[in-house]
Amino acid sequence: MNREQWLAERRHGVGGSDAAAALGLSPYKSTYALWAEKTGEVEAEDIDHVERVHFGRIMEDIIAREYARRMGVKVRRRNEILRHPKYPWMLANVDRIIEGQKRGLECKNVDAMAFRMGEWGEPGSDEVPEDYLLQCQHYMIVLDYPEWHLSACVGGNRLELFIIRRDPELAEMIIDGERDFWQRVERHDAPELDYSRPDTRQLLAKLYPGTDGTEVAFDDDIEHWHRVKEQASALTKQYSDVADAARNHILAALGNATFGRLADGSGYRRKTITRKAYEVEAATYVDCRHVKAKD
């Protein structure tokens, strides 16, 4: 199938990269956003043009070949979307399968700084970011494999191997959670929207992309959130003004100096930066702001 067909097929179930979002554990996508994509409420974001994703796809083949060389095994693609025989909502589009073994391979291109941020443990362990762990466990459930390897290229010049073994209790949690999520998709029953997530505003822009000329009367609940927004905005401006004043004190003390040092050894550096002119492409978006009542 071509990419358009593949994307369409992915709408008919939960894939490995969807597992964390379906369970409400993804730092990148909310359960509501995934539900909206699967039900067709919004178009799934095409991230192929994102440079990080593009290079991740390029690096996949390099990582797989180097893994095979180091491990002395043969790996092959499964150019199809696999479906669990008992749980048809569970899909898998895996990176590689190790020939002659019940073992799969997930290839990740990892930024060196992200690797040092604490979500990664010692190579050889299963200490990987939670969304990657759930992805590999999901694949093991679909293929009925006892083990999955995650090979991470760190900073473009180091390959580290993590070994993830099937966890029966975690597998049961994944199956139950994904079943609940998929039943919501089938019933067109939206999960609760997490308003505090940083990606919620982007999701709302997709759900409501235009204006229709109508007017709605807000209830007491929205009146409350209006007051919260106004108070928070006032506090934000107040603290922003304080921060600006503090910065002006520092700039005045620096004068024309290049560097001003604090007692702890840190300090403030001044340097001249020239920014080239550029053109901004035309864009259409929906602006939402509070307007005062007319007299």
Rank of each mutant, 00 (worst) to 15 (best):
R78C: 12
A245R: 10
H49D: 13
R165G: 11
D144Q: 00
E172T: 15
D189V: 02
W120N: 03
D61A: 09
V185Q: 01
G40L: 04
I163Y: 10
E223W: 09
D295C: 14
D264Q: 09
D167V: 01
V228R: 08
Y145W: 14
P27A: 06
M90A: 10
E80R: 06
I250W: 10
D220K: 03
P209R: 03
G213I: 07
D126G: 03
G213P: 00
A44P: 10
F259Q: 06
W182A: 09
E281Y: 06
M90N: 08
Y87F: 09
D167S: 07
R77V: 11
E122C: 04
D199H: 14
E172Q: 14
H54N: 13
T272P: 08
K229M: 13
A293S: 11
I63M: 05
K102D: 15
N79G: 11
Y195G: 10
Y195A: 11
R269A: 13
D95A: 03
Q238R: 15
K276N: 12
I163R: 03
W6I: 13
E51Q: 14
G16S: 06
R69I: 01
L159P: 08
V154E: 03
A243K: 07
W182D: 06
V73K: 01
R116A: 07
M173T: 15
R83A: 02
M1T: 07
R227M: 08
W120I: 00
T214Q: 14
T200P: 03
H224C: 08
A8C: 05
H54L: 13
A68H: 07
A252I: 13
F162G: 03
Y32S: 00
K86T: 10
I175K: 02
G13Q: 02
A253R: 08
R158I: 05
H54V: 12
S26K: 00
T31F: 07
R78D: 00
R201Q: 15
A234Q: 06
E119V: 10
S233H: 11
H12A: 11
A190F: 04
K271M: 15
H84N: 03
V154T: 01
A8L: 15
H224A: 10
A232M: 09
F55K: 11
L207N: 01
A205Q: 01
R3H: 11
L25D: 02
R270N: 06
T200Q: 14
A253V: 08
G213E: 09
L251F: 12
